[in-house]
Design a protein around this nucleic acid. Structure first.
Lengths: 170, 170
DNA sequence: GGAATCTCTTCACACCCACGAAACAGTCGG
DNA sequence: CCGACTGTTTCGTGGGTGTGAAGAGATTCC
């Protein structure tokens, strides 16, 4: 496995791609930027400027940890508990069913029809019910760095959102 | 868990002690020393001089990874003594049986039905008896940093409460 | 370009039920 | 009698769910 070097916060989306692909990476943090808090074992960071030796050491650390661990993907257990990393939230029945189909097609668009059928197998209530539940679901999963994107007139899409939570003010 | 800060390479043997005790630690690497390669998830390092914010970020990273790898579980003696770390409490019969099944599924949801069956094998009393016992159990185990979370309409979940995030200075 | 329209977001509200919590009573052993 | 353990009653609070309505953007039509 190669370790990707990327500048932070310049290459935020690349970091997200790498995280999704479960690839090792080391963030080169710009001099005046706050330090990211990294709990993914496949990730590390260095404050720039740094020597090549230090950067290499960080890369080797990630490689070493990669041999032992694999990062987790979000998963929904049958009790309606959605886990991502060390965090978890409990989802009420309707939202758990919606989340199940979103996870099934993780990263791809799921149509509103399909969501409605999964959420209410016995028959859907008013049209607006789905909208409201998507809003509530969005708020619940925000703390897990998950995010539901709207694809207008097509449906919704679930993905990892690593931009906000990674940086902690000290 | 506390994160120990220690100077490197000055406090080599202390690092070894902490590693053996499986305690989190952050090495403050002297300016002209080569970077250590760290594959232990409970360890990290910073090249000095570094800002307090950077050091804090490293400590938080170790804490986050420690949560993932911490396999330390509380245990329940057959005579109803619940131990976690150095602390212990004694549990009365009904609560001991409830705790046993919660420990069996540590970190996962246990349904109220299953709790009732385990707590009263010969037949459950009124519906609210379980509620009250969960309340009493909660209060008893609070001092052990254990916490029972409610998953509404699904059951309960036992987990470690990791509020104490103190950082010890070198 | 601008108006009508469609889709989605967001809030406020109402209803029901699960759970929390306290107070009280009964039982049992020392 | 006292204190620990247990179960019941009762009430309050908050979560889960659906509905209506206001409004923000985007799309389409003229």
């Amino acid at each position: 496995m190669d370790i990707a070097l990327l500048r932070w916060p310049l290459e935020q989306e690349r970091r997200q791609e790498l995280a999704l692909a479960e690839l090792g990476r080391v963030l080169l943090v710009d001099e005046d930027q706050p330090a990211p808090v990294v709990t993914d074992c496949l990730e590390d960071w260095v404050r720039m400027p740094a020597s090549q030796a230090d950067i290499d050491a960080r890369c080797r650390s990630v490689l070493g940890r990669a041999q032992v661990h694999a990062p987790e993907r979000p998963a929904l257990d049958p009790d309606g508990v959605l886990r991502s990393g060390t965090e978890w939230v409990s989802l009420p029945p309707v939202e758990a069913r919606l989340m199940a189909v979103l996870l099934d097609r993780f990263g791809a668009v799921v149509s509103r029809d399909q969501l409605a059928r999964s959420g209410w197998p016995k028959g859907a209530p008013g049209r607006n019910a789905l909208d409201v539940h998507m809003l509530r679901l969005r708020r619940r999963i925000a703390q897990l760095n998950l995010s539901i994107k709207t694809v207008r007139s097509r449906g919704y899409l679930l993905e990892l959102e690593l931009d906000d939570r990674a940086v902690v003010s000290a």
